[in-house]
Design a binder for these strands. Structure first.
Lengths: 208, 208
DNA sequence: ACCTGAACACCGTTCAAGT
DNA sequence: ACCTGAACACCGTTCAAGT
């Protein structure tokens, strides 16, 4: 029964949302689940695994924009020319979803930097971005690098907001963070376009 | 005597370098300084302040590229036309310094996201980047946003490397991270140039 | 297979006391 | 002003024992 594990993970996420990540102890999570601390170890192995599971839950619930030409009504046949949202719109949507997720769970931003994109929920996101970049016309050898760059900008912005790096800029000049994020997304899109159109000098020769 | 404080901070930095950040406890730092745990509180106030002081020490030792037309030999008179390294070279140098610093102190990347750029050592870096962007011709209202974006890309890359987000990409296809960082810097430079030349639509209207 | 209780080796921090 | 020792309320995890 993996049911119990999910229950534990959800309790831990709720606890982090309400009291902060430092309040997430094996003992506190156990109490919230109505069980003894040691009972957790049958389901999560260790605290590190608990934290991994927590970000996994979050990534799983991240709503991804549907890829172009997918999820069309009218039968299982492929519809390769169906005009789904174009890559620009999909990338913006993904960016907004990710930022919203971090707003909702600020404690997650630090963990997202420290866990490799290895869990299926994480590779799902990576694959989505790769697909967008290919649709944009980015040459194949540049796709992985650009995927990491796009992820770094989006995640870095959200982490800077959540962690406080952007905090308390100028007291006399309040910053509109929504608008700034939009402008950053614009810049990222332009970068992708430039790489796609070959205006950028290819600075990544054969990997090796 | 602020001397003792520095001694404590350095002991903590050494401890983090050797054993990781989780080994940095008040008790361990005290032992390394040859003092009782409680004696630390006269100098650092709390553990949070200790961590702040640690990143402060690191930022203070970050070697910044000399700004254009500064530190010229031959008297205190201003030499506004002295050709120091151009903004491109200075930004690359800063990027490499920051990445090298995080390589040397991987534990610092998480802290850099969670502390506002408020300490004098941090604003020193921010001001440097602002100066580079002005030299590049970025319009004034866009300078602060672009400073944050540049910082986010550089810090985000270093944090992804140090934290493990980039870890274990494809086993069959090793990635040259030095080359990737160089390519990312190229992209950032191009973005700055575009903003400077006004090719980018100004997406940040009057704040508010 | 899952859960319990006691125990071990730790934490950050407060407090009264020393010099 | 700076340091000490004891104490408080916590940690993650191991281990033997229960069902």
């Amino acid at each position: 029964m993996e049911d119990r594990r999910q229950e534990i993970l959800d309790a831990a996420v709720d606890l982090a949302d309400e009291m902060g990540l430092e309040a997430v102890s094996m003992r506190a999570v156990a109490q919230r689940t109505g069980v003894t601390p040691m009972a957790l170890y049958s389901h999560v192995g260790s605290k590190a695994e608990l934290l991994d599971g927590m970000v996994g839950r979050l990534l799983a619930q991240l709503r991804l924009p549907e890829s172009a030409g997918a999820a069309m009504p009218g039968g299982p046949g492929p519809a390769p020319d169906a005009p789904g949202p174009d890559w620009r719109e999909r990338l913006r949507t993904l960016g907004h979803s990710a930022r919203t997720l971090v707003h909702r769970h600020p404690w997650a931003s630090a963990l997202l930097f420290s866990r490799p994109a290895v869990a299926p929920d994480a590779v799902r996101v990576v694959d989505q971005i790769n697909a967008m970049l290919r649709d944009a016309g980015v040459p194949s050898p540049e796709v992985p690098r650009l995927e990491r760059l796009v992820g770094t900008v989006i995640l870095g912005f959200a982490a800077s907001e959540a962690g406080g790096r952007f905090g308390a800029a100028e007291p006399g000049c309040p910053v509109d963070w929504d608008a700034e994020f939009e402008a950053d997304l614009d810049d990222v899109l332009r970068l992708v376009e430039m790489t796609a159109s070959g205006k950028a000098t290819t600075s990544m020769p054969g990997s090796r």
